[in-house]
Structure formats: C-alpha cells, structure tokens
Computed example of a mutant assay.
Amino acid sequence: MDCATYIEKYLSAHVDGELSAAELREAEEHLAGCVNCRARFAEERAVKALLRERAAMRKTPAIVRGSILAALDAVDAAGASKSGTRGSDRSAGADRAPWYSIRRARMWAPVAIAAAAVFVFVILHGVGGPPPAQAIPPFDVAIQHYDTFAQRFEPNVKSTLPADLSDAYIDHNLPGFLWNFRPVGYKLMGGRIDRLADGTSVAYTFYRGDMGTILCTYMKSHGLQPPDGEMQEVGIHHYYEYKGYSICLSYPPRGGFICILVSKRPMKEFIEDIATCES
C-alpha cells in the first residue's frame, strides 16, 4: 500500500475504527513503516477528538435565546394580523392549506437565521482562543509539582547519586529507572518520594539546566491509557502539548506505572532531548 492509497481510502475510516480486520491489518502494516502517514493519522485523530469535544451540547446564551423568541413572536403576530384581514367570503378549507404553506416558509426564515446565529456563536466561541485542555489528572499532578519545583525544589531523598535515588524508589515499590539528561545539559538536582491523595507513592526526580528544567514523575498508572490528542508517538513515548507544557508520557518496563516528563521546552527540542538521552 502506498501513501496516496492509505490517505484517500483508509485514513478516515482507520481513525473512526471502521476498517475490516483485513483492512486494519494492511493499514497498520503501512503505518509501521511510514512516518509521514503516522503523523497524518495522529493529526486526523487529534482533529476529530477536538471536534467531538467542541461539538458537545452547550447552553445557548441568553441574548441568542432572546433573538429566537423575538423572531417567533414576530412571526406569530404577523400571522395573526394576516389571518384577521382575510375576506370572510373564502371558505376555511380553501384558505387554510395555502396559508399554512406560506406561514411555514415565513416562520422558518427568521428562525433559520436565529439558529444560524446560535451556530456561529458556538463556532466562534470555540475558535476564539485555544480549546481548553481536557483534564488529565496525572498530567495536572505533574505540572503542579513542576511549577512548584521550578521555583524551589526540596528533595527528601538525602543523596543525589543516581544509584541511591534508584534504590530509594525501589524501596517504595516504584520504578528504579532514572533518566540521564546530562548529555543535553541538565543536572540531576535530586528526588522526592511523596504520597498522592489515594495513598499511593509517587516519585519526583528534578533536573535543571541552562535551557530550563525537567521533572520526571513516577506513579501508578491506575489503568490510564494514552489519552487522545497526542502530538507524536515514538516507541513507548507519547508526546502532548498540555496547558502550555511539553509532556512525554511513557510506560516503564515495570508494569503498572507511568513516567511523566514535564518541561517548558518547545516540543521539537523536547523530543530531540529525550531521543539524545536514549541513543
């Protein structure tokens, strides 16, 4: 399968989950070897997720509801006036059918305009600024601590040696893997082990460099699957722009946990930093 065939015949149905088993197998085989189509797939999925979110039922603003009601009142008043001036020599049966058709046409014209106003309001409301990010609690936990640590980081693991941090994390039933961001100019500042509201342990490892800061958060996944809206997927890493932050969501080899890397670095440079550290 070539790219043109995939994009024209498969892409939309692939995103919507409407491919047959055989078609899905062909599509997945193509995506496995085509970075361009993987990017198109991610873009299409992100757009459709945004449309689903923005098309949610919204309460019509009072000003728009007032316009619709005023239009309906005007139609009713015009209809009453028109029917009152009709000659009594016409029979009710002869008059009713054509008036009904005319009244429907006249009624739906202003109502359609008012409805269009509602539609325009919702669309403009949606694109007037960036759409609000769908709440993802683990991301919110990570960025909240990132902001705090960027101002002042107070480690509670006494050592800053990677081996000692790893042992401390493992002792608290957390993954012992530590990122080494030294090749891209970040210094390991230390680690913290805290507890979340549900009582589970969480580990924070903080890095600082000339280009900014990075926070690594380890916590239980609680069944979290990669949310929609990712910018890019590279192996086990899922990249997101979330509330102004660059985020990498990964699943460590030790099951049941997630690793969330948070930074203010532009996404392209953030991905390059992570790739450099893994190479």
Score class of each variant (00 low, 15 high):
46 A>V: 01
123 I>C: 06
209 G>M: 06
212 G>V: 13
108 W>H: 06
23 E>C: 02
33 G>R: 12
27 A>L: 01
248 C>R: 02
201 S>H: 03
219 M>I: 12
191 G>T: 03
52 R>N: 03
164 D>S: 09
95 D>Q: 10
70 A>S: 09
216 C>M: 15
205 T>S: 11
36 N>M: 13
22 A>M: 10
57 M>T: 07
96 R>Q: 09
178 L>Q: 11
161 L>V: 14
128 G>V: 11
94 A>E: 14
119 F>V: 15
218 Y>H: 15
157 V>Q: 02
164 D>G: 01
167 D>H: 10
164 D>H: 03
211 M>H: 14
219 M>N: 05
65 R>N: 02
4 A>K: 13
220 K>M: 15
36 N>D: 13
78 A>H: 04
12 S>T: 13
20 S>Y: 09
102 I>M: 08
120 V>S: 06
78 A>V: 14
122 V>A: 13
105 A>G: 01
146 Y>T: 03
10 Y>W: 03
73 D>N: 03
258 I>K: 02
21 A>T: 08
250 S>C: 09
50 L>N: 12
266 P>M: 00
258 I>R: 00
222 H>A: 13
130 P>S: 12
48 K>S: 14
131 P>A: 14
151 Q>S: 15
89 D>G: 02
78 A>R: 03
250 S>A: 14
74 A>D: 05
214 I>H: 03
23 E>A: 11
238 H>K: 00
206 F>H: 11
62 A>E: 10
95 D>H: 05
22 A>N: 12
121 F>H: 03
210 D>E: 15
154 E>G: 04
48 K>Q: 15
111 V>E: 05
17 G>P: 04
94 A>L: 05
45 R>L: 08
128 G>S: 12
27 A>R: 01
252 P>K: 06
165 L>E: 11
255 G>E: 15
33 G>Q: 14
245 Y>M: 06
226 P>H: 02
88 S>Q: 02
152 R>G: 09
187 K>Q: 13
19 L>C: 07
50 L>W: 07
220 K>W: 03
140 D>Q: 06
34 C>M: 11
243 K>Q: 08
45 R>N: 11
122 V>M: 09
219 M>P: 05
156 N>G: 12
200 T>W: 02
54 R>S: 06
23 E>H: 01
256 G>V: 08
53 E>I: 07
90 R>K: 11
57 M>Y: 09
60 T>V: 06
279 S>P: 01
22 A>S: 14
85 T>V: 11
37 C>G: 09
73 D>H: 00
170 I>R: 14
134 Q>E: 13
164 D>F: 05
30 H>I: 13
276 T>R: 00
29 E>A: 15
80 A>H: 03
75 V>R: 00
78 A>S: 14
152 R>Y: 12
154 E>W: 04
272 E>Q: 10
76 D>H: 05
191 G>F: 07
40 R>L: 15
248 C>K: 02
208 R>K: 08
155 P>G: 04
145 H>I: 10
169 Y>W: 07
103 R>W: 05
238 H>V: 14
210 D>W: 08
200 T>E: 07
35 V>S: 04
193 I>V: 11
114 A>D: 06
